[in-house]
Design a protein around this nucleic acid. Structure first.
Lengths: 197, 197
DNA sequence: TTACTTATATACTAATCGTTCCATAAATGA
DNA sequence: TCATTTATGGAACGATTAGTATATAAGTAA
């Protein structure tokens, strides 16, 4: 049955998108309620009625990121494509997305809450958990590749995972520094060779 | 001649060290004056008399970092050692330093002001300039190596630089995530092979 | 119509932010 | 001794922080 009460006047999904851009650009702590409210075009009352708190909105933003821009690494869990192809695709899509000037550069999961004050350590941990998932997916993808003989067994999966993961995370800072997609893409070509050594 | 006036009661160098730990751990914006003052053991008046502002203290902290922990990449400009050795040393020393639990993990130049609110973009730019210097040193080191025949000429110096730099920056996030020095160190062994391909 | 539910606008809160002011303390120079 | 200089402790500054209170608007259900 239809819900009762006065209908919401603003578009909640659009508001989350606007909030995501701010959190992505400035980070969780450095983004103020005043900025969020202005970008979303709503008042304090509407904000808290719809989202509960600044932190809770951030959680909704993380979900939104994971199901939109963050999907660039989803190929890592796709067992229908070859592992090495999946890794290369994840890296190239990551580089492409993170250098796209139509939104904040870099990865929101790497940049938005890597450092914060003590009182928000639990928010930092939220992001940490998201990264752990990506790492897990990457490592399992590498293990599949080693079992199939696509990826060298000379190096332990854990080490290869650390290698690829560090490179992937580093792209965020490079994207912020203005390093071009082309340069990163060429670096990916080179780093993929380490899977064979 | 000796300076006049009441002598400073606290150790300025020690105070900068205490401030560095806070900025390193939490970032520039997330570190409050109250925290800084307490860690340094001084009052507002002493703080502003000695350092001028929160931002100016941050500049002094950057200098301190560059001449202490940040020296792990200084070998890149040492033309008396082979380029490839210098790069490997820079990476291993970086990994060792950034995972050392006796101080905040990761690199202060990567973590402390990568994202911030608009009003502090000039502070972010300070850190950006510091990173640019490291990148420049790395690229010139690679070029030397290619000229000497130590490093493959199959790949452009710019691309190899982007590859190594991304990996190096990514260590900061990994160190924050608790990835072990051992794992990163083994990854370095692997990534160094890309200099030969 | 009346009751109920939810969203809105506006005003407001206590706490914290970086910074400044002021009186006083402690040194040197004349 | 007395002026000058610099540092100190502590109170206070206006601005901003995240979040609430209150009254009203706008919908559905009976």
């Amino acid at each position: 049955m239809a819900r009762t009460g006065r209908p919401r006047i603003f578009d909640k999904e659009l508001a989350i998108s606007k909030a995501m851009v701010l959190y992505w650009e400035q980070g969780f702590e450095s983004t103020s309620l005043a900025q969020l409210k202005e970008a979303m075009g709503i008042s304090s009352a509407s904000f808290y009625a719809a989202f509960g708190s600044k932190e809770n909105l951030f959680k909704e933003v993380i979900d939104r990121y994971n199901t939109s821009y963050g999907k660039v690494t989803d190929c890592l869990v796709d067992t229908s494509i070859k592992s090495k192809v999946a890794i290369e695709q994840a890296l190239r899509q990551t580089a492409k997305m993170q250098t796209d000037p139509s939104h904040p550069t870099g990865c929101m999961l790497v940049l938005s809450a890597n450092v914060c004050s003590e009182k928000n350590n639990h928010v930092r941990d939220l992001i940490f958990k998201e990264r752990s998932l990506v790492r897990l997916n990457l490592e399992e993808c590498i293990i599949r590749g080693q079992e199939n003989g696509e990826i060298t067994r000379e190096v332990k999966a854990d080490v290869l995972c650390t290698l690829i993961e560090a490179f992937m995370y580093g792209i965020s800072t490079q994207a912020r520094d203005g390093i071009s997609y082309k340069s990163i893409d060429q670096a990916i070509t080179q780093i993929m060779k380490t899977c064979d050594i």
